[in-house]
Write a protein that binds this DNA or RNA. Sequence first.
RNA 1: GUGGCCUUAGCUCAAUCGGCAGAGCAUCGGAUUGUGGCUCCGAAGGUUACGGGUUCAAGCCCCGUAGGCCACCCCA
Length: 425
Amino acid sequence: MPTFRAPRGTRDLLPADRAPFTRLERIARDLALRYGYHEMETPLFEQGAVFERGIGEATDVVEKELFRVAPSRGEERERWALRPEATAGICRAYVEHGMQTWPQPVRLTLTGPMFRYDRPQAGRYRQFWQWDVEAIGDPGPAVDAELVVLGARFYREAGLDDVEVLLNSIGDATCRPAYVAELAAYFRRHEAALPDVERARLATSPLRLLDSKEPAMAALVAAAPKITDRLCEACAAHFAAVRDHLDALGIPYRIEPALVRGLDYYTRTAFEFYRHGAEGQQQALGGGGRYDGLVELLGGKPTPGIGFALGLDRVVLALEAAGADAAPVGTPIAVVVGADPADTAGRLAVATRLRDAGLAVGADLSARRLGRQLEAAVRDGARFAVILGDELGDGAVQLRDLDAAAQKLVLVDDLVALLRRKSAG
RNA sequence: GUGGCCUUAGCUCAAUCGGCAGAGCAUCGGAUUGUGGCUCCGAAGGUUACGGGUUCAAGCCCCGUAGGCCACCCCA
């Protein structure tokens, strides 16, 4: 029984688990760079108010899932919170560093852990990894389309070709309040027909009834007023333009009028990346949208923005479910082994020389017998073993090809060049 | 936060009705003192998640807690 365990909802990513994340992070980084986005970092924690004000006091993320932390000593009265998502922190940084003076829009991206104090489940953790992309400072619909394309492209390159783009517009301060009121009134007229769960939600968040999982709600939701029919002129034009841009790019998407996102800051364009998985699988692989009021909420000038976040943990799970081959783990080209159990210095010296020359080389520094060392080298995936023995007195070693089970005497001075050629070919 | 199912060695799992806690894989060592993948032998590894209760006796029955999974809630 281990005395200590990883905290609930967190887990250790052992080398084999870490490998697919490394692969996805590389794809994300390369892709972002190709699309002109610049990598940055924000702190893993912020003043709680950044999230409370940015994401919204009444959202689930802030109300029940915020991971609050406080220093155990010191004068600080400030309450801190681990970031539950990246957008609010990035916008805080945008304001703090005066990025409105940079050429607009500012295209930013980051990858890292997020934290939500939620009840864990497969694909839902208290610490999880997101790739986040933001374009701040451009009000136009074209950049909306750029982001959707970038996200969709990521899944393709990662190896998931059945990810669907769900698209909606949730209006802005001009048209949304009226729509929400109309929707609430509609459901109140049918209150008697509502399941208990939904009647309770009606008071707090009428929009949520739209994506209810209650079968009894299907007909009611289908007949409910649609936000897409109630958009103000500006929002409707924006939405149409986003669709035109996607159509022009040949990006398939599905209009989903029931798509409402859980954070208060969203305006207009909202989208989600969705994959029909096996039962019980988390199917929302990522999502994003426009947040034209967020920067101002955080103390900046009125500035439009749009972004998305993709859950890397869920992509890894989806890849496994799709039967994708596990990403190969980095393996050394050779392992240095020794016949003399006492001569660890010689093994380390030869290995260091090869490593300093840029080769990926393991070193067996154990006192076990040569056969065991070779066995371990094979298990490590090495193609060659550099065997140190009496020949070392003449400056030579045995270079053994572990696949062919053949070896030859080689001068230590020639090793680097030889292995370089082998690892290149 | 609500409800259901689950938890035995590092991993995957056995253990009849409540009656001596086991196997395979992995690890380490030996057969083989300078040559691997196969084989053989051996060692180590357990407070049966944790705490309590019932019983002559609990891995097994009961209660509580923790963790995992699932359905909600919500979301990545």
